[in-house]
Simulated scan of single mutants.
Amino acid sequence: MKDGNLDDVDREILYRLQRDARHTSSGDIAAGMDVSASTVRNRIQRLEAAGIIRGYHVDIDYEAAGYPLYTKLVCTAPVDEREELVRRALDVPGVVAVREVMTGDENVYINAVGRDHDDLNRIGRELSGLGLRITDEVLIRDEYVRPYRGFHDRERPD
């Protein structure tokens, strides 16, 4: 299954969970499809076991939560140390997401939050101490996400 052999039922389940996993039950998903709620639950368990569904995440307004500084740090890591540095960066307080990039010199993207500039400076120092070289910093106003339309039968490109 992990090699991309998803059928229409799997893709529709993924689409609906991406739209709103918290308020979407297996019964809700089944009602819009020609399958039972137990089939949906079994499919979700298979998708989780296969590592296709890796987790369920909350979309947080960091500013409203008291962390007005949301930043993306663009970093460079030696290729042979990149994976380990990415894992260690996740342990730095204030780091909320890390992306490992496979091409280019700027091969690690880190999202971090802080209450003030001192927080961001501390995060930068800790990441540098791990061996990451910060090449750029960008303050993020907000981030918007949407489900991948290719999973939704009616919108999937041919």
Rank of each mutant, 00 (worst) to 15 (best):
R88L: 15
D116S: 13
Y56M: 12
D116L: 10
E63Y: 03
V95M: 09
V86L: 10
D3A: 13
L69A: 03
D61P: 06
R19S: 11
H57S: 09
G114F: 07
R82A: 13
A89Q: 06
D59Y: 12
G104H: 03
G131M: 10
P147A: 13
R88A: 13
V138P: 00
S128A: 14
S38F: 06
D61T: 10
Q18L: 08
I110M: 07
V74E: 08
A77I: 01
E100Q: 15
D34M: 10
R87M: 13
K2H: 12
I13N: 01
D80K: 14
G129D: 06
T71K: 08
Y15R: 04
E126G: 03
R43L: 02
P147V: 08
Q45F: 06
G27E: 11
E155A: 12
V108H: 10
R43M: 04
D80P: 10
R54L: 11
T76I: 09
I110P: 07
F151V: 05
R122F: 05
R46I: 01
D158P: 15
I134N: 06
R11E: 07
E12G: 07
D105S: 14
Y148W: 14
A89C: 09
G4R: 02
P68H: 10
M33C: 05
A30D: 03
A31K: 15
Y109E: 07
E137W: 09
V96C: 03
H57V: 12
D153E: 15
E12D: 13
I134F: 09
E83Y: 13
R82K: 14
D34N: 13
V74Q: 06
G4V: 00
D20M: 06
G32V: 01
N121T: 15
R125S: 11
V9T: 13
V98C: 01
S26R: 06
R87V: 11
I140F: 02
I53F: 11
R154M: 11
D91Y: 08
E143F: 04
Q18T: 00
R43W: 02
V98K: 01
Y62C: 04
I123H: 10
M102F: 15
D28G: 09
F151Q: 03
G32Y: 01
A31R: 15
P157E: 11
E12K: 12
M102H: 12
V35P: 01
V74T: 15
